[in-house]
């Protein structure tokens, strides 16, 4: 009780570096290393209650907490943006508990925690990308039972998934999955890429960076090591197709980045802007240099 009533600035002394205690970190660290050894396989871990709600990034936060070092430069994004409320909240949490430097610049960050996007700027070796994952099981909506889905992964029995995708094509002429589009990792496990738009899927393939996934409520950790084959599921006659709004960003003019649609007037006029705020800033800078 006494400890709790102390000044908030003392939190960093009351709690361990980056919040989690050493024993919890050990358990998470063991899971992370096994996850890296078995790309795309979901390792169960005994997720802890965090001071943020389940579903708000507790898996990613636990992974980040277990990985952070004092020298890290941390970037946190939600929907591609550094200034969305939950990204702000998570970034503040690690500034307070780990006292790490933070940045909005993708290229300056050594560890990036993300929800729903992969940055547009190409990632580099030894950069760590931590994904917040709500439902880590790609088969969950086809088969709700863990006992069953675990068997399917063990037997590489993914027929159900292909049937679902094929039914979409038969019905609509398209695969009806626009985000959280399943991938096959290292030719073995079907993996949930977290709810990123399928536009981002190709960035996972053969990335030089280390990709770690944390699902707190569902108690799963998985990983995609660098230079790993990550293939979006598709059919020969219906190859996978990344997709974005066919417009230019109305701020930086970029036509190759993922765009958010915004409603700019009462009569419903639409405009499009980069979802990746750092990328948009960088492009804007480049443009002004060119003009000079």
């Amino acid at each position: 009780m006494n400890e709790m009533s102390k000044n908030e600035n003392l939190d960093i002394q009351i709690y361990n570096f980056a919040y989690l205690d050493e024993n919890t970190k050990r358990m998470i660290r063991r899971a992370l290393l096994k996850a890296l050894c078995i790309p795309g396989y979901q390792v169960p871990f005994s997720s802890r209650e965090m001071p943020m709600p389940y579903g708000w990034g507790t898996g990613g936060i636990q992974v980040t907490s277990a990985c952070l070092i004092p020298k890290d430069v941390l970037k946190v994004i939600d929907q591609g943006a550094d200034d969305t409320t939950n990204a702000v909240s998570i970034r503040k949490f690690f500034q307070k508990t780990a006292n790490v430097a933070v940045t909005e610049k993708t290229s300056d960050a050594s560890l990036i925690q993300t929800r729903h996007r992969i940055p547009e700027t190409k990632l580099k070796e030894k950069q760590i990308l931590v994904y917040q994952v709500p439902i880590p099981e790609p088969l969950r909506f086809l088969e709700p039972r863990e006992v069953e889905t675990r068997k399917m992964h063990a037997l590489s029995e993914y027929g159900l998934m292909y049937v679902k995708l094929y039914e979409d094509i038969a019905k609509h002429g398209h695969i009806e999955t626009a985000y959280a589009y399943p991938v096959k990792t290292n030719g073995n496990y079907v993996t949930d890429p977290s709810p990123i738009p399928k536009f981002d899927n190709p960035k996972m393939n053969n990335s030089p960076a280390i990709q770690l996934f944390g699902a707190g409520r569902e108690q799963r950790i998985y990983a995609i090591p660098p230079y790993t084959n990550v293939k979006s599921l598709d059919f020969e006659d219906y190859p996978f197709e990344a997709m974005k709004a066919n417009f230019k960003c109305s701020i930086c003019g970029s036509s190759d980045s993922y765009l958010d649609e915004i409603i700019v007037s009462d009569d419903g006029k639409r405009s499009y802007i980069c979802s990746d705020t750092d990328y948009c800033k960088e492009q804007t800078k480049l443009n002004s240099k060119k003009e000079d």
Binding site: N16, F17, A18, E22, I69, P70, P225
Partner: peptide, 16 residues
Amino acid sequence: SINSSIAFRSLVNATS
């Protein structure tokens, strides 16, 4: 916890 975190980063890199 600081030294253990640095050690763990080496393990993450080595395993990756």
